[in-house]
Design a protein around this nucleic acid. Structure first.
Lengths: 192, 192
DNA sequence: ACCCAATAGTCGGACATCCTACTATTCGGT
DNA sequence: ACCGAATAGTAGGATGTCCGACTATTGGGT
């Protein structure tokens, strides 16, 4: 496994601009040079963070046109799939996997922009229902088209390869306790 | 459109707690039901965000013991590999791929905690050098051990599988303009 | 030599996220 | 029927990230 990387070391980084080098491979190099362990895991975490940064950056870029962020878009999307376009805030937090205070903050901004309204829950006076406004629903539709147009920030990666990526990420999610029963490929070919 | 929901309910989501279902697969289901496109890309972006959240969450958890965050840890690691343990802030921003103001913010906190010191650059009076203190260097060493102990948040995933993941993530990074020449496997077996 | 563009760092503002603490409400067990 | 535990939402505070604007310095072209 490890000899795949030797070539790069020989190539030398001296005088190379940061924007011109493989920063993740550079991290791997430094790690090995420092005699540190768990290099593959370190590279995975680094790569994951960088890939996330790239994809989220492109998504948020595409959403600025609608004065939205990915967080707020996700909330709109969730509501758009809910019956009546409304859902209790606590349930939104569960689905979006964020802290209750993050839901408060997100709904605050969506409400400020007229995309969502708060109303008391009819059956539980502790709870608050967030409901999509007509404007919120139409904006979600337009934003969705924009995200499809940029393929959700996944660049020119083909669907076949995206499925491979999803499989690998499902293992990570599974290791974190997520239920991935609906995401793991069960055919014999499973590439990992 | 709306009658598609009947199917979903029948599929067995009714009464199911959010923490018990595959949220990414659920998103895929909703997307297909809504007749939307680029489903694979959407699932990839969603999975990537979730995996990132899980891994970063574990990493930051392991670092709380040292009063560090992953951002600050990354800055310490970068400095620990630099000659003399010091580097101009602008170069740190390039390597860490963050905005210059984020470097200012990170160094502010590291300096406040006595892990780093600021000093004027000897050759360029515009620039500021961030230099690791002895305490900063030793704390970085301890934090690194802690991160290795939790395998950088990658759970029990084997190295073979981590390499597969890295390959897939390298494609994403490449699509974002990153140089991944040091990360792409060049042997015939290339799994994607 | 001088002026203007590029570069380095910081400040203020906007967001997203988490945590702790607090109030209001609901629900289960005695 | 009542009391304590659990739940829903919010307020305040810390951190990280970005952007635009601003100051200081450097460097290239005329």
């Amino acid at each position: 496994m490890s000899d795949y990387w030797v070539v790069v070391v020989i190539c030398g980084m001296a005088g190379t601009n940061a924007s011109d080098m493989d920063l993740v491979a550079e991290a791997r190099r430094n790690w090995i040079a420092g005699g540190l362990g768990e290099v593959d895991a370190m590279v995975s975490a680094t790569s994951l963070a960088r890939a996330h940064q790239i994809v989220l950056g492109r998504i948020n870029q595409a959403l600025t046109e609608f004065s939205l962020t990915f967080s707020r878009y996700e909330a709109l999307a969730l509501l758009s799939f809910a019956r009546g376009g409304s859902m209790a805030m606590a349930r939104m937090g569960e689905r979006l996997q964020v802290h209750p205070t993050s839901v408060t903050s997100t709904i605050d901004r969506l409400e400020r922009d007229g995309l969502v309204t708060r109303s008391p829950h009819p059956d539980d006076r502790r709870a608050t229902l967030a409901t999509l406004t007509p404007h919120g629903r139409s904006l979600h539709g337009e934003a969705t088209k924009a995200l499809e147009a940029i393929r959700w920030g996944m660049g020119e990666i083909g669907n076949e390869q995206l499925n491979n990526l999803n499989q690998e990420l499902a293992h990570v999610r599974a290791s974190g306790g997520d239920n991935v029963s609906g995401s793991i490929r069960t055919d014999a070919k499973g590439n990992s």
